[in-house]
Simulated assay, not measured.
Amino acid sequence: MIALKSRHEIERMRRAGNVVAEILALLREKVRPGMTTLELDAIAENECTKRKARPAFKGYGGFPFTICASPNEKVVHGFPTSEPLIEGDILSIDFGVVLDGFFGDAAVTLPVGPVGAAKERLLATTEKALSLAIDKANAGGRLSDISHVVQSYAEGQGFSIVREFVGHGIGRQLHESPQLPNFGPPGQGPRLKVGMTFAIEPMINAGGPAVRILSDGWTAVTVDGFPSAHFEHTVAVTEHGAEVLTRL
């Protein structure tokens, strides 16, 4: 069962999403060589406190931080550390909040100074895949239309899709039904309806699709050591098409 949200509930999700967007925009400004991801985590938690929002990830399933910080070959769920970022890194930041009983969730992959053409192309492709996926989140379509456009675009650009981690429904819970893979044929799955809300989140690798989990039990890395990118927005299906709830 996919929960349908009322206009009032989507408005509450919009407020949560706006907090996510504001704080991610602030973190984007702070990412530079010499900054540590632990410092970014502290900034994010402090900004949540200012806005009377609760970090969505901290304590979720035992995750100990406010943000997921995943540089370079780390795909998702990376622990913030005291290791300084260096020029040429890329850094994926996944971040969410709960506000007034509703969740917002978004992610962005950022360059740390100049990163070179190959990493720039990976970031641009992943962000474009997210944009194409959002365009498919329209009433009357099928859930797998979103999945298929991510896979077809990314693989058409010579990249690979992470299979182990997927997007998801979102609302009163961080993870609701359904799961939303970034791969698969079109025209399958539930028909999209007004009031559905999803966290759409392509994770795309420069090398092969295989990932493994580090000894911390959380951090996923590419098996071949090639970099990975992750972009995400919380999206509502409305009468007028897809609305991004985590965009300023």
Rank of each mutant, 00 (worst) to 15 (best):
T219A: 08
S215R: 06
V19S: 08
D145F: 14
T234V: 08
D105K: 00
L192R: 14
V194C: 11
G156C: 09
D41T: 05
G241M: 10
L180H: 14
I200T: 11
K119M: 05
R54C: 02
F57E: 00
W218G: 10
E155L: 05
E155G: 03
H175Q: 12
E164I: 01
G158Q: 05
S160M: 03
G101D: 02
E155P: 04
I67S: 05
T238C: 13
L26I: 13
R142L: 04
K193A: 15
A229L: 02
V221H: 01
S177V: 07
E239F: 09
T197I: 15
F102S: 06
R54M: 10
A242C: 08
G141W: 13
G34R: 12
S82W: 01
S160G: 01
G88T: 12
G169Y: 04
I170V: 15
H148G: 09
G241Y: 14
L24V: 07
D224R: 06
E232Y: 03
H8P: 00
A139F: 13
P186M: 09
G169K: 08
I2Q: 13
R14D: 14
T238P: 05
H240W: 12
D135E: 15
V235H: 11
F165S: 00
Y60L: 15
A42Y: 10
C48P: 03
N72E: 12
E9S: 11
D94I: 07
P209T: 06
Q173L: 14
L123A: 06
G208I: 04
T219D: 06
N138P: 00
A53C: 12
A117P: 07
A236Q: 06
R142E: 01
K52F: 13
F183A: 13
F65M: 01
L99S: 04
E164S: 11
I10E: 03
V166W: 15
S152D: 12
P227N: 04
Q179P: 06
L122P: 00
G141S: 13
L143K: 12
V112C: 07
V19G: 09
E155Y: 01
H233E: 09
G156Y: 07
G113K: 02
I146K: 14
I170H: 01
K50G: 04
